[in-house]
Amino acid sequence: MTKSNKRELSPEQREELLKALKSRFDENMHRHEDFEWDHIQEKLEANTEKLWSLHEMEETGGEPDVVAYDEVNDEYIFYDCSAESPKGRRSVCYDREALESRKKHKPENSAIDMATAMGIELLTEEQYRQLQELEEFDLKTSSWVQTPAHIRKLGGAIFCDRRYDTVFMYHNGAESYYAARGFRGSLRV
Rank of each mutant, 00 (worst) to 15 (best):
residue 179 A to G: 15
residue 44 L to G: 05
residue 172 N to I: 02
residue 9 L to N: 06
residue 158 I to H: 04
residue 132 Q to R: 10
residue 114 M to F: 05
residue 145 V to E: 06
residue 165 D to C: 01
residue 11 P to M: 05
residue 5 N to I: 08
residue 148 P to K: 10
residue 170 Y to P: 03
residue 87 K to F: 12
residue 109 N to I: 03
residue 37 W to M: 05
residue 88 G to H: 07
residue 177 Y to D: 08
residue 110 S to N: 06
residue 76 Y to N: 01
residue 20 A to K: 15
residue 89 R to H: 04
residue 74 D to P: 01
residue 11 P to L: 12
residue 182 G to Y: 02
residue 126 E to K: 15
residue 6 K to M: 12
residue 29 M to R: 15
residue 115 A to L: 05
residue 118 M to E: 14
residue 153 K to I: 02
residue 49 E to Q: 12
residue 150 H to A: 10
residue 152 R to N: 13
residue 143 S to G: 02
residue 15 E to H: 10
residue 120 I to P: 03
residue 3 K to W: 09
residue 42 E to I: 00
residue 146 Q to F: 03
residue 115 A to Q: 04
residue 63 E to A: 10
residue 61 G to C: 06
residue 153 K to Q: 14
residue 161 D to M: 10
residue 3 K to N: 15
residue 179 A to W: 09
residue 113 D to R: 11
residue 149 A to T: 10
residue 97 E to N: 13
residue 55 H to N: 14
residue 125 E to A: 11
residue 7 R to V: 08
residue 176 S to E: 13
residue 183 F to Q: 06
residue 125 E to L: 08
residue 9 L to E: 09
residue 181 R to F: 03
residue 158 I to V: 15
residue 72 V to T: 08
residue 96 R to N: 04
residue 89 R to I: 00
residue 160 C to L: 02
residue 146 Q to L: 12
residue 78 F to P: 05
residue 93 C to T: 02
residue 83 A to N: 05
residue 94 Y to W: 11
residue 88 G to A: 11
residue 42 E to D: 11
residue 142 S to V: 00
residue 6 K to S: 14
residue 116 T to K: 15
residue 26 D to M: 09
residue 87 K to T: 10
residue 11 P to F: 07
residue 69 Y to A: 01
residue 21 L to Q: 07
residue 42 E to N: 09
residue 145 V to H: 06
residue 96 R to Q: 05
residue 113 D to A: 14
residue 30 H to K: 11
residue 160 C to H: 04
residue 38 D to H: 09
residue 84 E to A: 03
residue 131 L to E: 04
residue 19 K to H: 08
residue 4 S to P: 03
residue 136 E to D: 13
residue 152 R to S: 14
residue 168 F to K: 07
residue 119 G to N: 06
residue 23 S to N: 13
residue 28 N to V: 07
residue 5 N to P: 12
residue 97 E to I: 11
residue 104 K to Q: 00
residue 135 E to L: 02
residue 158 I to F: 07
residue 86 P to R: 06
residue 124 T to G: 01
residue 122 L to I: 03
residue 65 D to L: 10
residue 116 T to F: 07
residue 91 S to L: 07
residue 12 E to I: 12
residue 161 D to C: 06
residue 122 L to Y: 03
residue 181 R to P: 01
residue 172 N to A: 15
residue 86 P to I: 05
residue 60 T to K: 11
residue 143 S to K: 02
residue 8 E to K: 15
residue 7 R to A: 12
residue 47 N to G: 04
residue 82 S to K: 01
residue 188 R to I: 00
residue 150 H to R: 12
residue 135 E to R: 09
residue 122 L to N: 03
residue 160 C to R: 02
residue 8 E to P: 03
residue 120 I to E: 09
residue 131 L to K: 11
residue 66 V to W: 02
residue 11 P to R: 08
residue 65 D to V: 04
residue 71 E to W: 01
residue 183 F to Y: 15
residue 47 N to K: 09
residue 52 W to M: 11
residue 181 R to D: 03
residue 160 C to N: 03
residue 59 E to W: 02
residue 61 G to D: 08
residue 44 L to M: 04
residue 136 E to R: 12
residue 79 Y to N: 04
